[in-house]
């Protein structure tokens, strides 16, 4: 069975480190996804599901998010079963309710895409590809087309896990 899944492709060459993708991600995953001001100013700040990194010399940048691996290390290592991969959409998810904050996924993810230890929330967060939106919030917010939404065809097994 092949499935068409979405992926966000980052063109680091054109990432300018503005952080608008991260902000859009925070807002999209907040209680007020329609208002940046309300999302950011009501209660505690929403946690982004991705990060923007800058090189030590401040010359290059990278918008980092989960690559939605087909055989994800985070799912293998998760002690609580919070990290799962949906075989239909190919999206790797972490269930906030189940996560116990052991950071196993953080030490397992070779992309450095798991958000958690720095947030003070005691939960791991990661990109969910904003499946309910036409475009992932980060892609829609990037002013320089450094983030591109791709529809990728992947071959999937017929069995669901989880």
């Amino acid at each position: 069975m092949t499935a068409v899944v979405r992926r966000v492709e980052a063109q680091d060459e054109y990432c300018m480190g503005c952080g608008l993708c991260r902000l859009a991600c925070q807002v999209a995953h907040s209680a007020y996804p329609l208002s940046i001001v309300k999302a950011m100013k009501t209660g505690s700040r929403p946690v982004p599901r991705m990060s923007v990194e800058s090189s030590a010399d401040g010359m290059s940048f990278r918008s980092v998010r989960c690559l939605q691996c087909e055989d994800p290390e985070c799912v293998k290592i998760c002690i609580s079963g919070a990290a799962t991969r949906d075989e239909e959409t190919g999206v790797v998810l972490i269930d906030e309710q189940k996560c116990v904050g052991c950071w196993s996924c953080v030490i397992a993810c070779p992309e450095g895409a798991i958000i958690g230890p720095g947030t003070g929330r005691g939960k791991a967060y990661k990109c969910d590809l904003c499946l309910e939106r036409e475009f992932p919030a980060c892609v829609a917010a990037c002013p320089n087309r450094a983030l591109i939404l791709r529809e990728v065809e992947v071959v999937e097994s017929t069995t669901r896990e989880g």
């Binding site: 060459e13 054109y14 990432c15 480190g17 401040g58 010359m59 290059s60 320089n144 087309r145």
Partner: peptide, 18 residues
């Protein structure tokens, strides 16, 4: 705006596709 510069931090702001 990444135009009159060769500083890589700034020049990347003009995506040539755009």
């Amino acid at each position: 705006w990444g135009i009159a510069t060769v500083n890589p931090r700034l020049a990347r702001r003009l995506n040539p596709d755009i």
